[in-house]
């Protein structure tokens, strides 16, 4: 396994007395596609939200590309990161949200060009070219003047994926990208993600309840339970031959449910 691009060391996250992440150790290699599965409340989305700097951690160290994410080097060791450090680190990460979180007051095109222009400093021309290329990739090249609420959920989520990719992140985080979709729209979104996984050397971290999909695209599947990894392995190992009783019970409930 090559140098990990993401590393959680003894990470603790709690809300009051409730520990969402319990001394979590977790690594993702460059280019690796990792799926996180598990019951709700097991901390799987929290892992992504911590990486996107949407949630602070209460203990341990998270590193991205060998540099601490939530800390920076002070004169006497690590100190909590300031906004400038977080902004630098965020450049490497992109996130796709369960509820899409598109900007409702912007057209599809502007949803894709606004951040590349104002954050990365791209020219209007370059940002537009990049946007058109990405919309082509997600199969929405003809929708760029539409507003989000004129699109179906599946189309909105594909815009969400393109918007995150427009920032050229090294790591893509997918937080239950199909959970808010009508069943018949799930496929189009999963197809886009599968295509990304195949054709790009992006590192991908995916939280999902789509077990068959997880099996197809991931290099590794992690089963989270009670704030830690209960079991992990290749999709074949985990789905066909789970070792832990807890994993078996979960898979049984999900696959038969």
């Amino acid at each position: 396994m090559s140098e990990p691009i993401i590393k959680f060391e003894k990470v603790v996250k709690s809300y009051g007395n409730y520990r969402v992440l319990n001394d979590l150790d977790f690594e993702v290699a460059r280019g690796e596609k990792v799926t996180i599965i598990g019951p709700s409340g097991s901390g799987k989305s929290t892992v992504l939200r911590i990486l996107m700097t949407l949630e602070k951690i209460n203990g341990g160290v998270v590193s991205v590309g060998n540099e601490p994410l939530w800390h920076e080097q002070g004169p006497n060791g690590l100190v909590p990161a300031r906004e400038a450090h977080l902004r630098k680190m965020r450049k490497q990460l992109g996130m796709v949200f369960q509820q899409f979180n598109l900007f409702p007051h912007m057209t599809v095109l502007r949803n894709l060009t606004e951040a590349p222009m104002s954050v990365l400093g791209l020219s209007k021309q370059d940002a537009r070219e990049r946007a058109e290329e990405l919309l082509q990739l997600v199969g929405l090249a003809d929708q760029l003047q539409k507003f989000p609420n004129q699109l179906s959920g599946g189309q909105q989520q594909r815009v969400g994926i393109a918007r995150a990719l427009a920032m050229r992140p090294k790591v893509m985080l997918f937080d239950e990208p199909t959970s808010a979709l009508d069943p018949e729209l799930v496929g189009e979104v999963l197809n886009v993600i599968a295509k990304l996984a195949e054709e790009h050397d992006l590192t991908m971290l995916l939280v999902t309840h789509e077990m068959r999909f997880a099996r197809e695209v991931s290099d590794r599947v992690c089963f989270f339970d009670q704030g830690n990894i209960k079991e992990q392995g290749t999709p074949d190992e985990l789905f066909t031959n789970p070792k832990e009783e807890r994993t078996r019970a979960f898979l049984k409930a999900v696959l038969e449910g």
């Binding site: 996107m52 949407l54 902004r87 965020r90 949200f97 979180n101 606004e114 951040a115 954050v119």
Partner: peptide
Amino acid sequence: PSQYEAATALNFTRRQ
């Protein structure tokens, strides 16, 4: 709040 989360994920500054 989800709009602010999207803005953070895209690395907008507070002012932007």
